[in-house]
Computed example of a mutant assay.
Amino acid sequence: MTSIVLGDDHAVFVESLVSVLVAAGFKVPAVAWSLTGTIEAVRHHRPDVCLLSQRFPDGDGVTAIGHIVAASPATRILILAADNDTEAMGHAVRLGAVGYIHKTWEIRKLVQALERVIDRAIALEAPRAGSVRSDVSEARRLAGHLTARERECLALLVKGLDTPAMTVQLGVSTATVRSHVQALLTKLGVHSRLEAARFAVRYDLVDHDQHGPEGRTRTG
């Protein structure tokens, strides 16, 4: 069974992706929410593939490729990009990555890219710049209608917090949290908390210091 270590600091994105990968027949021995944790997880588990976010609060995923290669030379690295920087894609490949896919792609396409990487092929799929700019512009336009409190709630959804935890974090009532969450769902045009969190992750709508279980690594 192909093993994958996943490094990304967006908790909801990580959890949903792990579920998809396991359902698709992959083994996920560890997930890490920091760059340092990802390198250590790769060193310990020596997986077939490392799915590596481009951005972490504690560093840049692309510049850490060399450390991951050194930790486990046989591990193939696929970068989850947060922008449309073709120079970064080229740099990642030169450093040793064999895949580079944008986070705006559907998870189905990500799994397909993984399968190509596992088959010893290259998977480079930076989206068209115009398409990305249009999508990001629309996402930011929608997010621009959120109030400050609704943005806080969105950040907590990305962290994976439920309603009781959000009430404690924000110091407000359950009814108030539910009202804010329903409002942000409506404004973003999504139908569930999970969709809202994925939307925020996909279009980078939440500050990096606001999400992710800092420094944590989970082993399976």
Rank of each mutant, 00 (worst) to 15 (best):
M166Y: 05
T167I: 00
T167K: 03
V168T: 13
Q169A: 14
Q169W: 00
Q169V: 00
Q169M: 04
L170G: 07
L170N: 07
G171I: 03
G171V: 02
G171T: 03
G171K: 04
G171Y: 04
V172P: 09
V172I: 15
V172Y: 08
V172R: 09
V172A: 06
S173A: 06
S173L: 00
T174Y: 06
T174W: 06
T174Q: 14
A175M: 08
A175E: 15
A175D: 15
A175T: 15
V177D: 08
V177A: 04
V177L: 01
V177W: 00
V177G: 07
R178I: 01
S179P: 03
S179A: 13
S179G: 13
H180P: 02
H180K: 00
H180T: 02
H180N: 11
H180L: 10
V181C: 03
V181Y: 04
V181Q: 10
V181H: 05
Q182C: 02
Q182P: 01
Q182D: 12
Q182E: 13
A183K: 08
A183W: 06
L184Q: 10
L184R: 06
L184E: 07
L184V: 02
L184C: 05
L185Y: 11
L185V: 03
L185Q: 14
T186M: 06
T186H: 11
K187N: 05
K187L: 02
K187V: 00
K187S: 05
K187Y: 04
K187I: 00
L188S: 12
L188E: 13
L188V: 04
L188F: 09
L188W: 09
L188A: 12
L188N: 11
L188R: 08
G189M: 02
G189E: 05
V190Y: 12
V190T: 13
H191V: 08
H191F: 12
H191S: 15
H191D: 15
S192G: 13
S192F: 10
R193D: 12
R193P: 04
R193Y: 09
R193L: 03
R193E: 15
L194K: 11
L194N: 10
L194R: 12
E195W: 03
A196G: 10
A196D: 15
A196Y: 11
A196V: 03
A196C: 08
A197Y: 01
A197G: 03
A197C: 01
R198P: 02
R198D: 14
R198W: 12
R198M: 14
R198G: 12
F199Q: 12
F199Y: 15
F199A: 10
F199T: 11
F199C: 11
A200D: 11
A200M: 04
V201I: 07
Y203I: 02
Y203S: 09
Y203H: 15
D204A: 08
D204V: 03
D204Q: 13
D204F: 05
D204N: 14
L205Y: 08
L205S: 13
L205W: 11
L205R: 08
V206R: 09
V206E: 08
V206D: 11
D207K: 04
D207W: 01
D207P: 04
D207T: 01
D207A: 14
H208P: 09
H208S: 13
D209F: 05
Q210I: 00
Q210N: 10
Q210T: 00
H211E: 12
H211Y: 15
H211L: 10
H211S: 10
H211G: 11
G212C: 03
G212K: 01
G212M: 01
P213F: 07
